[in-house]
Amino acid sequence: MNPGDELPPLEIPVTRTLIVAGALASRDYQDVHHDAELARQKGSPDVFMNILTTNGLVGRYITDHFGPGAVLHKVTIRLGAPNYPGDTMVLTGTVEEINGRTATVRVVGVNGIGRHVTGTVTVTLPAEDAI
């Protein structure tokens, strides 16, 4: 693995179920994440994914790729275009830096309306992937 390497993309179907399940699993009861009517009153066309779910999906994308034993150290994300039901988010990653067994990966999640998330993950690789 070298800086500049790209991770295979991960497609996440953004279902209403995922949005609600993610909000509840993260104990986030903000109405915009489960009540479409109240979301509309607040200027949003529909419910949308909460930031904790995005954070969890970005973490999963990295640990899925590097495999069992990969350990997350830092996850930094910024949200842009919301994840609404019916959309698909495609996560892609680019290795930015490798320092011993620690890699820094730039992650971008794009949906049908733009960039949902941009972020950086620092992860320690499993021993067998060491360089």
């Binding site: 995922l18 699993a25 969890g56 999906l57 973490g59």
Partner: peptide
């Protein structure tokens, strides 16, 4: 477990 179900995360850790 509920979190991992929602995220689709099967990491054995």
């Amino acid at each position: 477990r509920h979190w991992c179900e929602a995220m689709g995360d099967n990491d054995p850790a």
